[in-house]
Write a protein that binds this DNA or RNA. Structure first.
Length: 283
DNA sequence: TCCTCCCTGTTC
DNA sequence: GAACAGGGAGGA
């Protein structure tokens, strides 16, 4: 499940394949893979991919007309791709046929003239693409509400975003609080910080909040260094798996011994998600 | 603030 | 053949 570290890895590995490439064609094989607010993907034809970035769990392709420095109105300046659970962005040689799970694809021409394709494959078909002007992007509630990047967040900033009586895990998963955290890194960070995922946000003291932000940054940075975690589907743009799944302390380890204290790890649903934590280390 | 649904492959 | 995985939309 691509979360921040996986999406960051995809952006980094995809960039060298597509930077400077001109979009010569667009094919949508599954209409539901296009966000309802998106401009028609066909409007991307003729634009050049200027860069690949990440915001939260979104991959952002900056696009611009080849001959003009600024985008005229109505022409997309950005393509936001959400991989959700099983989405993959894969460069392929020109002429490669779409697979059974290919949802859309771009025909590209690299700066040296070599043709290429960029596939969006997604077995579960939850992923979406959103071609947008800056104005259109602002109409997207999810985008407008996206919280800060956790790696750039200060303790004060984190503190300001934490409020209410819901479980701390629910807050971490809320993309309006912090952008990019999903089930894996929420559980891992809470374990590192020694905080019970069910604790109400309002009950967390200043020291615990600081510890949690520190744990979140540590675990995200470590995971980025390992090119993310591959549970099953996740691969980067070069088709490589990540390695951080080998460092999980709690995710997927319910019933096994806590690596910290040896206690049996608990598994239950918190915030509607499978959650694993140590009843002794996490209070 | 919580629950259900979307979608499909994997596991029980 | 049902349960499960899960981010986010939408409804209770």
């Amino acid at each position: 499940m691509p979360e921040l570290p996986e999406v960051e890895t995809v952006a980094r590995t995809l960039a060298p394949h597509v930077n400077g490439s001109r979009i010569t064609g667009v094919e949508v094989l599954r209409a539901s893979a296009v966000h309802p607010l998106s401009l028609p993907p066909a409007t991307l034809a003729g634009l050049v991919i200027a860069g690949v970035r990440r915001r939260g769990k979104l991959i952002l392709l900056d696009v611009a007309p080849a001959d003009k420095p600024r985008n005229p109105g109505g022409v997309p300046s950005l393509v936001a791709v959400h991989l959700r659970m099983t989405g993959r962005l894969l460069p392929r040689p020109a002429g490669t046929a779409p697979g059974p799970y290919t949802r859309w694809l771009l025909d590209l021409e690299k700066p040296d003239g070599t043709p290429q394709r960029l596939f969006f494959d997604d077995t579960r078909a939850f992923g979406t693409v959103f071609a947008a002007t800056p104005g259109l992007l602002q109409q997207w509630e999810f985008w407008r509400g996206l919280g800060p990047e956790p790696l750039e967040l200060t303790p004060d900033g984190f503190d300001r975003r934490l409020s209410g009586r819901r479980a701390i895990k629910a807050a971490l998963l809320d993309q309006r609080v912090v952008a990019g955290i999903g089930n894996i890194y929420a559980d891992e960070a809470l374990h590192r910080a020694g905080i019970d995922p069910r604790r109400p946000v309002a009950d967390l003291g200043p020291a615990e909040r600081r510890r949690l932000l520190g744990a979140l940054k540590d675990v995200l940075a470590l995971a980025i260094d390992q090119c993310g975690s591959s549970i099953r589907d996740y691969r980067d743009a070069d088709g490589n798996a990540g390695a951080f799944q080998n460092s999980f302390a709690v995710y997927g380890r319910a019933g096994k011994a806590c690596l910290g204290c040896g206690e049996t790890l608990s598994g239950r649903r918190v915030a509607g998600r499978a959650t694993v934590f140590c009843p002794r280390c996490q209070r």
